[in-house]
Design a protein around this nucleic acid. Structure first.
Lengths: 215, 215
DNA sequence: CAAATTGGTTTCGCCTCGATACTTTATGCA
DNA sequence: TGCATAAAGTATCGAGGCGAAACCAATTTG
């Protein structure tokens, strides 16, 4: 049984302010919350016969522009090996959620599209519940959270960028070209591709991601 | 290669406000950020020969009161099976990071303590970097984030509480007694234990957790 | 005191994921 | 043009995490 062996000072309100009698230390709390929320979110995604990686891939494929909807794109974004992603994609395909069609521009790559079934699945995305919860909060707090979390992620990506496990390098490399070119014309680390800008809306999503990663 | 096939409206500043020309939708952004941060945090923890679960267990054991530092406590907190946790604990023990000592009050339970090595390890906790990043942000934002994330987690726990995978029920059940009894004298869901309050500081940490989960 | 509960461990097997090797197509360099 | 190299994807193998179930020991409950 869980035993309660302690009782500190007298607290009355159950507000959120750190009146608990110890150092507030928002930073530590945030780290803790991120950690635990991550775990919960992960747990949340074991549903409908998919696993977290599959959900994330499906989510990415649903929101990425058509040139990014490839196994390699998923691998970059998720920071996983191509081999691993190949399995994930195969799983999604065997479940009938996506369809692979070989590209005619480059016969090595295969383009991925969500099937109707896939669209239906993504509509029941379990992390949607986070969305609704946040949606019920006042807009100011939500905005601040977007700000803070975005900056946190940006810093984390930079922080990890040089580390051996190049998860975030990958996403930066993948995403930076978008707003990097558009916003500052400097493209800090997308010089490798240097593709000309053309077309329009469908890659809107990447812009968003960049918004997060661009500091 | 990643191709840039789009270019939306004209944006100049790379500020954080949703001037990107599409619906702000903070909620969706937060969900997305949580998801990705969770993945990054997870990746972050494959270091020093430990895996995320082991880090989380170690972290919990470092901060839990002595009555909660049991395999069962870890299992409740992490929302994992006792069998799984037994392995995790064994791994930590074999690495010399923790020590198991049988309880004399209840000979079934074993108390867990961090060894000096374990303390040294926890001092290099990889998620600490999140802490420092957040610490560099202005206090107001950090406070708002703590608030928002805490509420999010609370809601998530409630949301998931009734679901089959009882991750959060477990932590609520484990943590609620603390502030549930102290703060509101109502203990919404810790009635099951109903242990008398005695002792003092060492379970301070649980109070914190409760602060998050308590609405 | 017997029955049922609870904390913990062990065993088993599934599944995820990285590493490696391999195939096919592009690209770069002479 | 032709050969070497790189890149996209796939297949295979193996390690490891984790849940399920069986099990043991101790405690509680009737």
């Amino acid at each position: 049984m869980t035993v309660n062996d302690g009782q500190s000072s007298s607290e009355t309100a159950k507000n959120d302010d750190p009146m608990t009698g110890e150092t507030p230390d928002h930073a530590a709390r945030v780290a803790e919350l991120i950690d635990r929320l991550g775990r919960m979110t992960r747990e949340l995604q074991y549903v409908d016969g998919l696993n977290p990686a599959q959900w994330e891939a499906l989510r990415y494929l649903n929101r990425a522009n058509r040139y990014s909807r490839t196994p390699g794109g998923v691998a970059d974004f998720l920071g996983a090996t191509k081999g691993t992603i190949s399995q994930t994609v195969s799983a999604l395909e065997s479940k009938g959620l996506i369809a692979r069609t070989p590209s005619d521009r480059d016969k090595r790559v295969c383009l991925i599209d969500l099937t109707a079934e896939g669209e239906r699945m993504i509509a029941r995305d379990p992390v949607r519940c986070i969305e609704t919860i946040v949606g019920s909060m006042d807009d100011r707090t939500a905005a601040l959270m977007v700000d803070g979390l975005g900056r946190l992620m940006a810093s984390l990506q930079i922080e990890l960028g040089s580390k051996p496990f190049g998860v975030c390098v990958a996403c930066c490399r993948h995403l930076a070209p978008e707003t990097g070119c558009k916003k500052s014309e400097a493209l800090p680390k997308c010089g490798m591709t240097g593709e000309p800008l053309k077309g329009d809306a469908p890659q809107r999503i990447c812009v968003n991601y960049l918004g997060d990663a661009a500091e």
